[in-house]
Amino acid sequence: MTDGGERTHGGERLGLRERKKRETRAALSLAAIRLCVERGWGDVTIEDIAEAANVSVRTFRNYFSGKAEAVAARHLDRMLAIADELRARPAAEPLWDSIAIAVQARFEAGDDAGGGAGEGAVADDRWRDGLRLMLAEPALHGEVAKANAAAEDALAEAVAERTGTSTADDVYPKLVAAVVGAGSAVAVTRCMRADPPVPLVPVLREVFERIAAGLPVP
């Protein structure tokens, strides 16, 4: 189980400076998501995001090339955290139990702006509509694809370590990582489209229970 301390990708304990950098990166990403959802993609500038996060534009550019990268960073950082959560789970625990717990823990944290940015209860219709519009923005698609690729690589490494697979490029860890990403996306999309709204964590639980069971026909 986790010991409550933050760790780097790979499981090493974070120092104070690295924690501060992660906090700034997260604050910028969350500010970018919140502003783009609330105002619309075209009405948010880098200056707006920096101001909302209480940092300079120069600091923003130290972390991100633009607002698309800042928005996509939230997904990447969450998946890196899931990989680290997986490494911290008991070795004797079944793999898919560990994965389900790790995924739910990161989404259940509810640390995205506006009550979850597609997570948690997703109760606000205006927020959900704004989030859907933001995610449909063509300028964001390339950065999301890059984040997805990096996230799958990181999770595959953790799975390879966990299962004793020789490398993260072997079929099994890559397949598991892809399934985790797809399952998480299905759960979030289900919650974003549900009317009335439904909480995310139970949907995630259902998704990973079905995956662990081998996706039997309902």
Rank of each mutant, 00 (worst) to 15 (best):
F60Y: 11
Y63E: 04
A26Q: 09
E119F: 09
D84T: 12
R7E: 06
D48P: 06
E85N: 14
A212E: 15
Y63F: 15
L131N: 12
T24V: 11
R78E: 10
N148T: 04
E93P: 08
W96I: 00
R162S: 06
G183V: 02
A92V: 12
I82Q: 10
A72C: 06
R74T: 00
E161Y: 07
A158Q: 01
A154G: 00
R58C: 00
I99W: 05
G15T: 10
D125A: 11
T189Y: 13
P218A: 04
E23F: 12
R34K: 15
T2K: 11
G5F: 12
A73R: 10
K146M: 06
Y63R: 03
G116K: 05
R61L: 05
K21M: 09
G42H: 15
G115R: 15
A73L: 01
W41F: 08
A182R: 11
D124W: 07
R190Q: 10
A154D: 01
A52D: 13
C191A: 11
A185L: 09
T24Q: 08
L131E: 14
Q104P: 00
A70I: 10
G40T: 12
Y172P: 01
E137K: 08
L200P: 04
A182I: 12
M79T: 04
G118P: 03
D124Q: 09
T8W: 00
D3G: 01
L28V: 09
T189S: 09
K174D: 01
T8P: 00
A109S: 13
K146F: 03
A149H: 13
A139Y: 07
R87K: 08
V188M: 15
I211A: 14
W96A: 02
L80Y: 10
A213M: 02
A160R: 13
F60A: 13
E12D: 11
A92C: 09
E108H: 15
V171R: 09
A156E: 02
D195K: 07
A52V: 12
R126M: 01
D170E: 13
D97N: 14
S65L: 02
E108P: 13
A50M: 09
G10F: 05
E23L: 15
E23N: 15
G183H: 05
P138D: 02
V71M: 03
E38K: 08
N148D: 05
T167S: 15
A91P: 12
A73W: 03
Y63N: 05
V203P: 00
G214Q: 08
Y172I: 00
T59P: 10
T8H: 02
T167M: 10
R34A: 13
M79Q: 07
E51F: 06
L140T: 04
L14C: 01
G115D: 14
A145C: 01
